[in-house]
């Protein structure tokens, strides 16, 4: 039985490999590396911005830096950072997720005031992506709750984008003549009765709507809608801007504890500050994020139609912490929608 794979030597070798792998777990410290932990729809934008930043950093300091990104659902990404993912900066979908990291002491509690405009260098909103010609005639939020309309949105429990969708609809219903929390609840219940598939993330919902042909309307980030529109042929879909929506402010922050340990604070701060520079602002506009810089916004022309937008700090919501507790925590309003006997 010579030459049988399991020899003494290979067994010892395997042990050695495992040993080194477990011992050498620390990330290799070579050229400075910057890890940006972000959420799903920013993939294309940060790929472009990373290149821009690396070049800029080299020009200014002479140092070579590697910028890498990790993408996923906003909540999952925040949890990974809490659990020890060595992020230098986080660029997530909601302030709530960064607050959660801050609560565990990884980020300073005052993070949101450290950068201009609520630490959100670009904004977005929620729009409707409908089938070509809008056969169901969906113009505003009220149309979505009508019988016979199938609405695709991700699950607000797992997707940051879906929370913006939900809150936009809820605010719209409150703002209607005779609006009240009860009326909003009734509206949201009718809306979610029209949802046949709840994917876990924004990208999953887009695929369900676009590739699988499910639903009449997709509630999506403005940038996602435009990207899907560009990727999947213009002949198939239309983008509908409702008369009213929500101002989504995806915030960014330096993860203090990680940058201090890894000695990357200077680069991390420059990375985020750079997002407010004109070049990055017009890059954001190119990727369908609404730039904060008025010049970049003007340059984008009619790419971003004006519409009335409510912010999360409006008394209607009272900030993310309250909105999260009221609507999305276990036992919150969203869970009650799916209580049996409703």
């Amino acid at each position: 039985m010579q030459g049988f794979p399991v020899s003494r030597r290979s067994v010892a070798g395997a042990g050695l490999v495992l040993g080194t792998a477990l011992a050498g777990g620390a990330r290799a410290q070579g050229a400075t590396q910057l890890l940006n932990v972000s959420y799903d729809p920013t993939r294309e934008f940060y790929r472009a911005y990373n290149a821009l930043f690396v070049e800029d950093w080299k020009r200014r300091t002479g140092q070579t830096i590697r910028a890498s990104t990790s993408h996923g659902g906003s909540g999952r990404q925040a949890r990974s950072v809490i659990d020890g993912l060595q992020a230098d900066v986080v660029t997530l979908a909601l302030a709530y997720d960064i607050d959660a990291i801050a609560e565990r002491g990884l980020i300073d509690a005052n993070w949101q005031s450290r950068l201009p405009q609520n630490s959100a260098p670009y904004t977005s909103t929620i729009v409707f992506l409908v089938r070509k010609g809008n056969p169901k005639g969906l113009r505003d939020w009220g149309d979505l709750a009508k019988p016979g309309v199938a609405v695709i949105t991700p699950n607000p429990k797992t997707s940051g984008g879906a929370r913006w969708n939900y809150l936009a609809g809820w605010a719209w219903a409150q703002r209607q003549p005779g609006g009240s929390p009860q009326a909003a609840e009734t509206y949201i219940a009718a809306l979610f009765r029209n949802v046949p598939v709840l994917d876990t993330g924004a990208r999953g919902s887009t695929t369900t709507f676009v590739q699988r042909g499910q639903g009449d309307v997709l509630l999506a980030w403005e940038n996602e809608a435009h990207l899907a529109f560009a990727e999947f042929g213009r002949g198939q879909f239309d983008i509908v801007y409702p008369g009213f929506s929500i101002l989504a402010e995806p915030p960014v922050a330096v993860v203090d504890r990680n940058v201090d340990r890894r000695g990357t604070r200077a680069a991390a701060e420059a990375f985020l500050k750079g997002l407010y520079e004109p070049e990055a602002q017009s890059l954001a506009a190119q990727h369908f994020y609404r730039p904060r810089d008025p010049a970049a916004l003007a340059a984008a022309g009619d790419r971003f139609p004006q519409l009335e937008m409510i912010t999360i700090d409006d008394p209607l919501f009272g900030g993310w912490r309250k909105a999260q507790a009221d609507h999305f925590e276990d036992g919150g309003l969203f869970d009650r929608l799916y209580r049996p006997g409703r």
Binding site: R79, N155, D199
Partner: peptide, 19 residues
Amino acid sequence: NMPMVSEIAPLLIVVRLEQ
């Protein structure tokens, strides 16, 4: 993944982790 209809238990674990 519709709650009460087609939501599986492992997804619930993921949902809770997200919170």
